[in-house]
């Protein structure tokens, strides 16, 4: 079996083009499980997956959970708010405790960048990063890639515009690195206050004008504007943001006929995207959601043989 070279999936940065293609091909093959009358394969039977979510998440957690169930894994959901974490337990202690339960895979979402890397060093099980701070969200980028490949037939040579709050977005980082690796021309577009320092070095061209990138883009990835960042004065107001960066039907007229619109969700309708675009013919937003499950099934399957053989910490 072809497989991934690392024990964990911590970020797109660690993946080779071959590995990305392997995941996408596997996901494509697994996508048909959803069309069966019995949506289940025995691939991970007897394997234990822990979903360790330190940040509230509905769609990513549900997507992972369905992926695990469709692969017949035994699963344990662990949400930080209902656990010992709220009693002051550290991440390492939580990890060591869970590790002693001998899981095969731990899916982790955490508000601190690098938290999955910390677990990875401590745990024998495979760690899947389900989003760490502003760092990476690799399975989201992979499902985005799968969606683009599904609709456009390729990624190589496409012009992909990522528009919005690049600075605080782990999706933007993972997408940029992945699309750039796969040979796309990536544009990061947003107000200069929301483009982080040296972002071009991740492999993106930078623009402040949405019109400039819309005219030639094959794919438009809209990012959520994070209301909670307002206090730091990155943009003057949501209204002004909408006026300059909102994806409206009028602006979409600048784009090519076959340009597709994506959004990692959750959307702020009327802020970064208008309803008639989000629900319009160019939108592939719901394909992304469907592909999310197949992509996560692929990642879990490909990592399921990679956990270390010996526990790091011997039980006494």
């Amino acid at each position: 079996m072809a497989s991934l070279s690392h024990k964990d999936l911590l970020g797109i940065a660690q993946l080779s083009v071959e590995e990305i293609n392997l995941i996408l091909d596997t996901a494509e093959a697994l996508r048909q499980v959803a069309d069966r009358p019995i949506k289940k394969v025995p691939t991970l039977r007897g394997k234990t997956v822990i979903n360790l979510f330190f940040e509230p998440s509905t769609r990513t957690r549900s997507s992972f959970e369905l992926a695990e169930k469709r692969l017949s894994a035994d699963i344990l959901n662990f949400a930080a708010s209902t656990s010992s974490v709220s009693k002051g337990e550290t991440l390492l202690d939580t990890a060591r405790n869970l590790e002693s339960m001998a899981p095969d895979i731990i899916v982790v979402r955490h508000e601190s960048a690098g938290a999955p890397h910390m677990l990875s060093k401590e745990c024998r099980s495979s760690i899947v990063n389900a989003g760490d701070g502003m760092h990476e969200h690799p399975t989201q980028a992979l499902l985005d890639a799968l969606t683009i490949r599904e609709v456009k037939g390729r990624i190589d040579g496409l012009k992909i515009a990522i528009i919005g709050d690049i600075a605080h977005s782990r999706v933007a980082r993972s997408d940029t690195i992945l699309f750039h690796k796969m040979g796309a021309e990536v544009w990061a577009c947003g107000p200069p206050t929301l483009i982080p320092w040296d972002y071009q070095k991740l492999g993106a061209k930078i623009s402040g004008q949405i019109e400039e990138v819309l005219v030639s883009a094959d794919v438009v990835m809209m990012l959520r504007v994070q209301h909670e960042r307002q206090t730091e004065a990155f943009v003057p107001s949501m209204r002004e943001y909408y006026n300059f960066y909102g994806l409206t039907r009028e602006r979409m007229r600048l784009a090519k006929k076959d340009t597709i619109v994506m959004h990692p969700g959750p959307m702020n309708r009327g802020v970064e995207i208008d309803s008639d675009v989000a629900d319009g013919p160019s939108s592939v937003i719901l394909n992304q959601v469907a592909n999310g499950i197949a992509t996560r099934m692929a990642v879990l399957y490909l990592l399921s043989g990679n956990a270390g053989l010996k526990p790091k910490r011997q039980l006494r």
Partner: peptide, 12 residues
């Protein structure tokens, strides 16, 4: 703050 804070997703 610089390329590495951008890459690592850490506040610069």
């Amino acid at each position: 703050e610089g390329y590495y804070s951008t890459l690592l997703g850490l506040r610069g």
